[in-house]
Design a protein around this nucleic acid. Structure first.
Lengths: 164, 164
DNA sequence: TACCTAAGATTAGGCGCCTAACTTCCAACC
DNA sequence: GGTTGGAAGTTAGGCGCCTAATCTTAGGTA
């Protein structure tokens, strides 16, 4: 691979990463959330109460990160942390009513973020976009991509069919 | 747009962002660099000595960020900071010999990062990959995408031609 | 000349994210 | 039943990145 291509690819991915996060930050700001926290909330909403260790896996970040995220979300009154009844080491995290009440607005911002992200597509179709980004994820972290596959099983099957 | 699509798109982009940065961190670690610093060095190498304000623009980050990056790179002995002769407010940053000596290894890691990133592509061709990611950048931050266009003028013209 | 807006840079403080090191507890094994 | 290896969680410290506020200087205008 030549340097020019590599440079452009790396730079562009970096910009997408930076700006996607910045957009998220702007959209989440008036909910009192910082980017990263929304993942935890969305996770708890769709999968139910979970131990922090499980959250770390499904949020694709390390235990210390989830530890801090969860602490601040608890202070904000959006989640509860209760020691597990079956494992004295584990802590089970769940949404509070305030947290659940936030999910509506949060989900609509989440959709808005994706819309803004895909708004400038001209030659690329939505399915193709998802396919390409997903291949990137698979390339950079097979384990994470696999977890994404499991989560979005039906859609990814559809994509497989249209590709083959 | 439905929530399932938005969720998958946002999550996947987030994972790509996280893992791309993690890969960069791993590759840069034994050069004594942290991700973010390489951009400054690459910038100085290709564009020559520049004021911090200019670096902030071309590195796509804010002045305080560049201020800290530059301070640490100076401590590391990779760059110099000298007050501008024409503007008493400005500081001109340049590579030292040690910094220049690092560019070879740095560029090869940069290529390696892009190779790893694109290694898992099956159905997507390199040009298509760049095109899609670039459309994402354009969508999220037109100004940044425009600056990328100027930087990689020839390649982006080629892409335009193959698309139209 | 004096003024005043804007630009360049820094500091302070906060966020997510990481690794390394530590504590507590589970569970399997001798 | 005591021992040991690993899992869950936290703390400490460091990184890039951000916004807001501050200071100094540049450069046009009254």
């Amino acid at each position: 691979m030549d340097f020019a291509y590599a440079d452009e690819l790396n730079r562009t991915i970096r910009i997408v990463a930076l700006k996607h996060r910045a957009r998220a930050a702007a959209l989440l700001a008036d909910l009192g959330l910082y980017p990263g926290q929304e993942i935890v909330l969305l996770e708890l909403d769709t999968l139910g109460p979970r131990k922090q260790a499980e959250l770390a896996v499904s949020c694709e970040c390390e235990p210390p990160t989830v530890s801090q995220l969860v602490r601040k979300l608890e202070i904000a009154g959006l989640i509860t942390r209760q020691p597990s009844t079956t494992d004295a080491r584990a802590i089970v995290v769940d949404l509070t009513d305030r947290g659940r009440a936030l999910m509506g607005p949060l989900k609509s911002r989440w959709i808005e973020l994706a819309e803004v992200t895909a708004a400038g597509l001209e030659t690329t179709k939505p399915d193709e976009l998802l396919s390409v980004v997903h291949e990137l994820a698979r390339s950079l972290c097979p384990a994470a991509a696999l977890r994404l596959d499991q989560r979005f099983e039906r859609r990814s099957e559809c994509r497989q069919r249209t590709i083959n």
